[in-house]
Design a protein around this nucleic acid. Structure first.
Lengths: 120, 120, 120, 120
DNA sequence: GTGGTCTAGACCACT
DNA sequence: GTGGTCTAGACCACG
């Protein structure tokens, strides 16, 4: 497990996104245990509190469950996971269009660009 | 002239983007003068320094030109404006795909969503 | 302005209590400005963030008002202040009785003790 | 035997207080044996180590006595128990007055409130 | 100058 | 060992 941190976004947010992605891709199954704050901090080379903040956020979004003294684990509810995926996709699209609209890209041009980028 | 500031991005960046958009859409022509820092600050309800920072950024990107004592005006070079537009579009697309890729949206689904969103 | 920090309670809580007390005692009037985070931190010999946390808590309790870039000031609404005083007194009494009840102090004895302590 | 744990204080402290209260109220007599760590942990739904910490604290305060291999039992010394009670009452009163003094409650008002609260 | 956020170190309670 | 909180340093946006 490793994350290539970029400098644009806070690290704790990038950790949150990493876990969401792993869950959506099926690499992390509902009910599965997460690494402890300390261990993950070591693996990622960040402070324990940065991981702690990420886990708190995941907890707040009801993506993971935490009990005192025990390792946190992934929320079993599959529908919650799907809910989050849909909402993330919509947010991304909305932000994207809000920003690209004033640049006057017509539908044809946009489609061409997307086709290109989609397949790298 | 007015801007609906959101809270996600710094205000001075939103001012920069506003001018870039206006130029691209032809509402501001190359050579045209900009409002003074003070006036714009009043119009937007922000501090003069915030406008100043935006104008500095526009100058740094060679989008406007400032000469002492005269109003700043828009860079005449049309190709520079187009360059910026292309680069903005590419950045937006790259960011968008970086973020949506891990969400496993297949090409069909993506196209459907984009068609919907494009026409609001 | 100075606070004798004890070690039992978090410093930021003690700062919160200090301001509440000052307001209740009339030493700080509604509308009055607070020292900036930095200045107060210097005066108290704590980190800026400790003050920041205290101010956030005061803000959350609607005791002070904060606008970006400007100094925070005390909530003008006097009734809110009184509300807080009453609620603090009740909380103190409830906690006190929860803890003293199991110690079997009869009413007479309790009154004698309180009379003594009240006048130091 | 059961304890309604609150979240404000550490559990092991609440267990300590529980035993002190029981002794003061005569529900636990000097010399009487205590449940084993394991049994009590089960009854209270906490980890054995939490009970262990509470028992250690009780021992440190010379309230219980532990001999290897035998159940722990309550310190026979009655005067020690009374000493603790007096000291607890004084601590409670001191803390209470330290916190309520800055709230400017006059003696009359305080007495009225205490009369009310004392009889629930 | 002002307020706000992210990261990190130290320490505590709990299993 | 686990998770949780308090304090603090560095940096950013805004007036």
């Amino acid at each position: 497990m490793d994350i290539n941190f970029n400098t644009r976004n806070p690290r704790y947010i990038q950790i949150v996104r990493y876990f969401i992605n792993e869950i959506i891709n099926g690499n992390l199954a509902p009910g599965e245990g997460l690494p402890s704050r300390r261990k993950l901090a070591l693996m990622l080379g960040v402070n324990v509190n940065t991981v702690q903040r990420a886990y708190s956020e995941l907890e707040r979004q009801k993506i993971i469950v935490t009990e005192f003294g025990k390792p946190s684990y992934i929320q079993s509810d599959k529908s919650r996971i799907n809910e989050i995926r849909i909402s993330l996709i919509n947010d991304l699209l909305d932000t994207f269009f809000d920003e690209i609209r004033p640049l006057n890209v017509d539908y044809e041009e946009l489609n061409t660009l997307i086709k290109e980028k989609y397949h790298n």
